[in-house]
C-alpha cells in the first residue's frame, strides 16, 4: 500500500523541480547546440538561456514566467495499491498542483475557455490532466509531471499512405517553419511526432514523444530511429535558430512514436517541447522509498506492445 500523504508531498516536490530545474539531458543538448551556433543573435540567445537555467536554480525561481499547463502522467506496477484508492490519488495531485502554483510560484495559466474564470491555482475542469499507464509486475507508482507550454508549436494533419515519407517531411517542415518564425515555438525544442493511431491518440503519442522521452533516446524500431535522425537533421538545416533568428539549431532532438491506424490513413501530429522543457519524475515504493529522476522511461516494451498477449504469457504457452 502506498501512502497518500507521501504521494502528495512527492508530487509537490516534483512541481517545484519541473518548474525550476532544467533536465540534464536537455541541458546537455542545448550546451552542444550553443557550441555549434554561428548565428550572432541566435548564439546570444542560447548563451542567455544557459545563464537563465543557472539563475533559476540559484534563486529557486521558475525558469520561465510562463510555467505552462501542469499535467500528470501516472504509471503503476500491476500489484500497486494506493491508500484511499484512485480518487484519493487524483485529489492529492490536484492539491499538489494548486499548492505549488502558489508556492513556487507558478503562473496560474488555467482559465475557463469561454468565461476566462481563473481559480489562480491551475486547477479547474479537466485541469490538471491525469493520464495513466501500467506495467507488468511490481508495487510502485511513478509520478511524472510535465508543464508544457500551451500555445504554439503543435499541429495535426491527416496524411495518407500516398503522401509517403516525403509527405511526413513536408508537414514537419511546415510546422517548424510556421511556428519557428519569431520564435513562437520557443526553440530549439524537443520535437515529438505522433504517427498513426486515431486523431486523438495521434496527438497523445506526439505529445508523449516530445515530453516523455529524453534527448538522445531512439525508438526501438531501427527504421523509425533512422527517420528520427533524418528529421532531426532536416530541422537543423532550415537555417533558423532560436527566436527565429538566422541560425542552425532549431531542434535539440526529434522523437517519433507510432500507433496502429486506419488502413487508409497516416495521421501525423507535431509537438514542440520548449527551451524550458519542464518535466520531473519520482518513483514511490510501498516501503516508503522515493527515487527522483528526470527520465520518465514511459515507452517501455510493454507500452509499445504489438500482440494480443503480453510476452511472458506467450512464452509460458510455448
Amino acid at each position: 500500500m502506498i501512502s497518500i500523504d507521501l504521494i502528495q508531498s512527492t508530487a509537490e516536490t516534483l512541481m517545484d523541480k519541473a518548474a525550476i530545474e532544467i533536465p540534464e539531458d536537455y541541458l546537455d543538448g542545448l550546451k552542444a547546440a550553443a557550441k555549434t551556433e554561428e548565428g550572432e543573435l541566435s548564439a546570444f540567445v542560447l548563451d542567455a538561456m544557459l545563464k537563465n537555467y543557472e539563475a533559476a536554480k540559484e534563486d529557486r525561481r521558475a525558469m520561465c514566467g510562463d510555467t505552462g499547463t501542469p499535467r500528470w502522467y501516472v504509471k503503476m506496477g500491476n500489484e500497486t495499491q494506493i491508500e484511499g484508492g484512485p480518487i484519493a490519488l487524483e485529489t492529492a495531485l490536484r492539491r499538489a498542483t494548486a499548492n505549488r502554483t502558489n508556492g513556487v510560484p507558478l503562473r496560474p495559466n488555467r482559465v475557463h475557455p469561454l468565461w476566462r474564470t481563473d481559480h489562480n491555482n491551475n486547477v479547474g475542469i479537466g485541469a490538471p490532466e491525469i493520464e495513466y499507464g501500467y506495467e507488468p509486475g511490481g508495487e510502485w507508482i511513478d509520478l511524472i509531471t510535465v508543464h508544457k507550454g500551451g500555445l504554439f508549436g503543435t499541429d495535426y494533419r491527416m496524411l495518407f499512405p500516398s503522401d509517403g515519407i516525403e509527405g511526413i517531411k513536408r508537414f514537419y517542415l511546415d510546422c517548424l517553419v510556421a511556428f519557428g518564425k519569431r520564435g513562437l515555438a520557443c526553440q530549439p525544442a524537443i520535437i515529438g511526432i505522433g504517427l498513426g493511431g486515431c486523431k486523438d491518440t495521434c496527438m497523445v503519442l506526439g505529445k508523449r514523444a516530445a515530453c516523455l522521452r529524453v534527448v538522445g533516446s531512439r525508438n526501438t524500431d531501427p527504421r523509425v530511429a533512422e527517420l528520427e535522425d533524418e528529421l532531426k537533421e532536416l530541422g537543423n538545416s532550415i537555417g533558423m535558430g532560436a527566436m527565429g533568428f538566422v541560425g542552425k539549431n532549431m531542434v535539440i532532438d526529434t522523437h517519433i512514436e507510432v500507433g496502429y491506424c486506419h488502413t487508409g490513413g497516416m495521421q501525423m501530429s507535431v509537438h514542440a517541447f520548449c527551451l524550458s522543457s519542464r518535466r520531473a519524475v519520482a518513483r514511490i515504493f510501498a516501503d516508503g522509498r522515493v527515487e527522483y529522476r528526470t527520465d520518465p522511461d514511459w515507452f517501455t516494451d510493454y507500452q509499445r506492445r504489438e500482440t494480443v498477449e503480453w510476452e511472458p504469457v506467450m512464452e509460458a504457452a510455448e
Partner: peptide, 30 residues
C-alpha cells in the same frame, strides 16, 4: 524578450512589485 523564457533572469531584474491593479476583476495572470 530573449529565449523565449529567460524568466529567472528577468525576475532578478525586478526590485519589487509596486502594485497590482485589477487582479480581482481580471485574475492574477491578466
Amino acid at each position: 524578450t530573449v529565449g523565449y523564457g529567460t524568466g529567472a533572469l528577468l525576475g532578478r531584474g525586478v526590485d519589487n512589485v509596486e502594485a497590482v491593479h485589477w487582479h480581482e476583476e481580471l485574475g492574477l495572470a491578466q
